[in-house]
């Protein structure tokens, strides 16, 4: 039984890869909650991957090994996107009253970051269609890496692609989407970033 406390990020990542690919079994497997355990493993994998990306690239072969979990489950858990940087929610203005202002916000904003990339989304209710919202986004890579950047919106529930847009030269895009929850995949020149479960509406 490995001692998790003494592992560094690299070792912990390899251990989790083993768990995800089935090469090892979890310490205390719960037969009633296999998917829950898997989710926790993937969550841990994601967290550690982001940390490894700051200190140095994880082994490509390890990522491939972890991604080799059987099809639908892998897709559901996002393991097939382990090669993609996962953005974390750092700002959410829903429910925030504009304290210190003489009015109210009619939009809300969500901010995500990962590895030097900041994604700021503003969600505006559609003026004409109550079932849709307009999303304005700015993606700040810090180094003007916004040429030929494609952004894809997938339904979180079934991964269907619903919209694709290109960033303009300032890193902005506008898209109109039906209310729902979306994964946003940003294809930068040298890497991709996944913004998971963006709630629209």
């Amino acid at each position: 039984m490995p001692n998790h406390e003494s592992m560094d990020d690299g070792q912990r990542f390899e251990h989790l890869v083993d768990l995800a690919s089935g090469a090892q079994v979890p310490d205390a497997p719960d037969p009633k909650d296999a998917s829950g355990t898997s989710t926790k493993i993937v969550g841990a994998l994601r967290g550690i991957l982001d940390s490894l990306r700051v200190s140095g690239e994880p082994e490509e072969s390890s990522i491939l090994r972890a991604s080799s979990m059987p099809g639908s489950l892998a897709s559901r858990l996002g393991l097939d996107k382990l090669g993609v940087g996962l953005a974390q929610l750092v700002g959410d203005t829903r429910g925030v009253v504009l304290a210190g202002y003489r009015g109210a916000a009619t939009t809300y904003a969500l901010t995500f970051t990962t590895d030097g990339v900041e994604i700021h989304l503003e969600v505006l209710p559609s003026e004409y269609d109550g079932d849709k919202a307009e999303i304005q986004a700015h993606i700040d890579t810090g180094d003007d890496e916004t040429n030929d950047v494609t952004v894809r919106f997938h339904k979180t529930s079934d991964s269907t692609e619903v919209s694709t847009a290109q960033l303009d030269d300032g890193g902005y895009l506008t898209v109109s989407l039906p209310l729902g929850t979306y994964d946003m995949l940003i294809e930068l020149e040298s890497r991709s970033v996944l913004v998971p479960a963006v709630e629209i509406g």
Partner: peptide, 22 residues
């Protein structure tokens, strides 16, 4: 219009950031 939208987007963001102390 596109450039103006960018500016207003950032101004709105600044207002929201200021309100949420980010």
């Amino acid at each position: 219009e596109a450039l103006q939208k960018r500016l207003l987007f950032q101004l709105n963001r600044a207002v929201m950031s200021s309100a949420s102390s980010t």
